[in-house]
Write a protein that binds this DNA or RNA. Structure first.
Lengths: 115, 115
DNA sequence: AATTCAGTTAACCAACTGGTTGACTTTCCA
DNA sequence: TGGAAAGTCAACCAGTTGGTTAACTGAATT
């Protein structure tokens, strides 16, 4: 059983649904970075990066420490756990189901008709 | 190493970012269902469910067989695998990092200032 | 004191989302 | 043959997203 308080799977999955955001997570996994350091590899504006960071913060995936004029961002991977668990629950299916149930269904769905 | 062709993590994560869509996946995990059967538990219109199904189909998470006038939908869990793997990669962090690196960082970030 | 640097905020834009209602197509059934 | 049923499609709506540029705040540098 999963049994999380289900913090906000929506926010986490939505945060992960953008390649820039996943790349930011990937960068921060190598260690904390300032906003400028984060934005360097991307050819989008700084405000755009700032917005992505806000999405990640809202999903609690990134925390920020203001040190002087620089904002040091750090990955907080905990909210990924419920998402991972949600997927793990269905990971039983994509092997189990595919030889057992799928075989069963393909013999009962003979009158199929793909659009 | 993950080394998937990375089909479209975007589409899968975006599809999972909606609670109705996750519930549809949950329902289809118990076996194939028609569109009406899927929509029954929700108090949104049929066209709304139809749109959700289109998102799930675009992410290749749901396949459909038109049998007469009913559309039988089935869960296809394979595209969840790359998403699961992506998260698994970072699952190393949320234990490893949190005692090692986090402890290291909290002693070098003494002058923090949460907004 | 003036300037530059880090970063956010504001206003704007086009595109997408999630929902609706109404009209339509196709299939089943009496 | 005439509904009713299953489902999509089209048009619409309000709100969000991902991006921009311009203006701003606050800290560092000179």
């Amino acid at each position: 059983m999963v049994n999380y308080p289900v913090p906000d799977l929506d926010g986490v999955f939505r945060a992960l649904a953008d390649p820039t955001r996943r790349a930011i997570i990937g960068a921060l996994a190598r260690g904390p970075k300032t906003v400028s350091e984060i934005s360097r590899p991307f050819d989008i504006s700084l405000p755009a990066v700032s917005k992505h960071l806000k999405v990640l913060e809202r999903a609690r995936l990134v925390t920020r420490q203001v040190r002087g004029r620089e904002h040091h961002c750090r990955l907080n991977p905990q909210p990924l756990a419920p998402a991972h668990d949600w997927l793990s629950f269905y990971s039983g299916f994509w092997q189990e189901r595919l030889d057992a149930l799928d075989a069963l269904l393909s013999e009962e769905d003979q009158d199929s008709d793909e659009a």
